[in-house]
Simulated scan of single mutants.
Amino acid sequence: MDSLLNFFSLSLFRLPAGEDVSFKLLVDEEIEDTETFQLEFVETDKYAIRVCDPKKNSRDAKFWKTVAAGIQANGNSKDQADCQFSVEYNGKHMHVRAPGGKYVSVRDNGHLFLQDSPKDFIFRLLNRPKLVLKCPHGFVGMKEGKAEVACNRSNFDVFTVTYKEGGYTIQDSCGKYWSCDDSSRIVLGEAAGTFFFEFHELSKFAIRAESNGMLIKGEQSGLFTANGSEVSKDTLWEF
Rank of each mutant, 00 (worst) to 15 (best):
Leu5Thr: 01
Asn6Gly: 14
Ser9Asn: 10
Leu10Asp: 07
Leu12Ile: 09
Arg14Tyr: 02
Leu15Phe: 08
Asp20Met: 07
Leu26Asn: 11
Val27Thr: 15
Glu29Asp: 15
Glu32Trp: 00
Glu43Pro: 02
Glu43Thr: 15
Asp45Thr: 13
Asp45Glu: 03
Tyr47Cys: 06
Ile49Gln: 00
Lys55Gln: 12
Lys56Gln: 12
Lys65Trp: 03
Thr66His: 01
Ala73Cys: 12
Ser77Leu: 02
Gln80His: 08
Ala81Asn: 11
Cys83Tyr: 07
Ser86Ile: 03
Glu88Thr: 04
Glu88Met: 08
Tyr89Met: 12
Gly91Ser: 07
Met94Ser: 09
His95Met: 00
Tyr103Val: 02
His111Met: 14
Phe113Ser: 09
Pro118Asn: 03
Lys119Asn: 13
Lys119Cys: 13
Arg124Tyr: 11
Asn127Cys: 06
Pro129Asp: 01
Cys135Ser: 02
Val140Met: 06
Lys143Glu: 13
Glu148Ser: 08
Phe156Ile: 01
Glu165Asn: 08
Thr169Ile: 12
Ser173Asp: 06
Ser173Cys: 00
Trp178Tyr: 12
Asp182Gln: 13
Ile186Val: 15
Gly189Leu: 02
Thr194His: 07
Phe196Cys: 07
Ala209Thr: 05
Gly213Phe: 01
Lys217Met: 14
Thr225Ala: 12
Thr225Arg: 14
Glu230Pro: 08
Val231Trp: 00
Val231Asp: 05
Val231Met: 00
Ser232Ala: 01
Ser232Gly: 07
Lys233Thr: 14
Thr235Lys: 06
Trp237Arg: 12
Glu238Gly: 03
